[in-house]
Simulated scan of single mutants.
Amino acid sequence: MVLHQLLSYETLRLVWWLLLGILLIGFAVTDGFDLGVGMLLPFAGRDDLERRVIINSVGPVWEGNQVWLILGGGAIFAAWPPLYAVSFSGFYLAMFAILLALILRPVAFKFRSKREEPGWRARWDAVLCFSGFVPSLIFGVAIGNVLQGVPFRFSNDMHIFYEGTFFGLLNPFALLCGLVAVAMLVLHGSAWLVLKTSGPVAERARGIGSVAAIASVVLYALAGWVMWGWVVGYQVTSALPVNGPSNPLLKTVALQAGAWFANYAAQPVLWLVPALGVAGSLLALVCLRVRRGGLALLASGLSIACIILSVGVSMFPFILPSSLDPRSSLMVWDASSSHLTLFIMLVVTAIFIPLIVAYTSWVYKVMWGKVDADAIRDNRGHAY
């Protein structure tokens, strides 16, 4: 037997769908509190010292957290080439806005401390807030558009045609999903600040996080209600090509109201996923009120993971529906790389992901503890 045939093509496709979700969740949970802290910077910190405390709370870890975004992009490129081709070309301007914000973030971190002029530092603080808000909003907007279907199609020779515009992405439901993402990352960032800081900064973060927890629950429930009543889902009407070639045009797809809830109807246990998303935010709210930053961070991380997972569960087996030609919609079973490629990537992933997790855990352990405001005032032991 050839080695890669130890796992069937169907199994490898399913494994890589799960791994893609894990990488996206890993980015949202780790880099998510960095983005949340950036959005909180002008509001939780009232003077330069307090803002330096906030910045130094993420200073040792923010760069390492971005590795999950790189891994996610790499996984899409190698495991799901059609998905990469459609999303990274069709969402080009949206991706550019995200990259601009993420490029400005390290510049702001490095340049802010170079001059003590209040105006100089205030401008870079605004950049850090911008670089936290824009990616959070656009990632949520992207998910909202995916749920509605993206305006692309394949020709018979598999040439891609995308007929959408950047402003077309900013439709009401997508913006609602963007606000869900902003609220849950502000909550996550608030929990981090309660854990890593003390005094007025932690108290302000606790108050803002409490509001964000309620907002995330309300907005998530509202998005679910809108999706139930107005967002039309997709359903395969032909045999599923679970072991077939990666050609989306070999199936037939129909639009159907409520199709995104079909998986929940078939497997009621899946309702635990969105329920845990809501419960995580509410638990984070309780933990913030009693000043348990560590538990609040874990609870908000659980909420983020389950909210993202609920999207994947709702859409499965679709990963990128097409609003122009439903038949062109990309699914787990017809948008992957070859059997051998997926197997080789799985072996590499099994080696390197544990190393990344181990190194990241070591960094968090070494850098544990609250940020010392006195050490920052005396310019001892802090980078920013």
Rank of each mutant, 00 (worst) to 15 (best):
F154V: 08
F154G: 09
F154A: 08
F154Q: 05
S155L: 08
S155D: 15
N156T: 13
N156R: 12
N156Q: 12
N156A: 15
N156W: 10
D157Q: 13
D157W: 12
M158V: 06
H159I: 10
I160P: 01
I160S: 03
I160G: 05
I160A: 07
F161H: 06
F161M: 11
E163M: 06
E163S: 15
E163V: 05
T165I: 12
T165A: 10
F166L: 15
F166V: 11
F167S: 13
F167K: 05
F167D: 08
F167R: 09
G168C: 10
L170G: 06
L170A: 06
L170S: 04
L170M: 15
N171M: 09
N171T: 05
P172T: 03
P172D: 06
P172G: 07
F173M: 12
F173D: 08
A174T: 04
L175F: 07
L176W: 04
L176M: 10
L176V: 10
L176R: 01
C177T: 14
C177M: 14
C177R: 15
C177Q: 12
C177I: 09
C177D: 07
G178W: 06
L179P: 04
L179D: 03
V180L: 07
A181S: 14
A181W: 13
V182C: 09
A183F: 13
A183R: 08
A183P: 08
M184W: 11
M184G: 08
M184T: 08
M184P: 01
M184D: 12
M184N: 15
L185R: 09
V186F: 00
V186R: 00
L187R: 00
L187T: 02
H188L: 09
H188D: 05
H188Y: 07
G189D: 07
G189H: 11
S190Q: 07
S190D: 09
S190K: 08
A191Y: 01
V194N: 01
V194K: 02
V194G: 02
V194T: 02
V194L: 06
V194E: 00
L195E: 13
L195T: 12
K196N: 01
T197W: 00
T197R: 00
T197M: 02
S198K: 09
S198Q: 14
G199Y: 04
P200R: 03
P200K: 03
P200I: 03
V201M: 07
V201N: 07
A202P: 04
A202N: 05
A202W: 05
E203C: 02
E203D: 09
E203M: 08
